[in-house]
């Protein structure tokens, strides 16, 4: 992914997840907990989307990005 598209992805996911967090905090819909998970998980989703396409040329980075997602899940579960 080009730098420009990656920057858009990071900023877009960050802004969208922050807006969802506000909706969750103010109106407390049924998906409130998921909004919190999405906000804290936005950097990991962005990294996975950004780096996974590199798995042919740079497999370790792609695996590391997925590894971060696993660590994030552990942070929420334990």
């Amino acid at each position: 992914m080009s730098n420009k598209n990656a920057a858009r992805l990071w900023l877009g996911l960050g802004t969208a997840s922050l807006l969802l967090l506000w909706v969750a905090v103010l109106f407390r819909p049924a998906w409130t907990d998921w909004a919190k998970v999405l906000f804290t998980g936005a950097p990991f989703v962005a990294a996975a989307i950004d780096l996974w396409p590199r798995w042919r040329t740079d497999p370790w980075s792609a695996v590391a990005a997925l590894g971060l997602c696993v660590l994030f899940c552990i942070a929420w579960i334990i």
């Binding site: 730098n3 920057a7 990071w10 996911l13 960050g14 962005a46 990294a47 780096l51 740079d58």
Partner: peptide, 18 residues
């Protein structure tokens, strides 16, 4: 703060994402 800052740095090509 870090997500906003990272977007700016990534756009400029300064970040070593791997």
């Amino acid at each position: 703060t870090a997500v906003g800052g990272s977007a700016m740095f990534i756009r400029e090509g300064h970040t070593d994402r791997p």
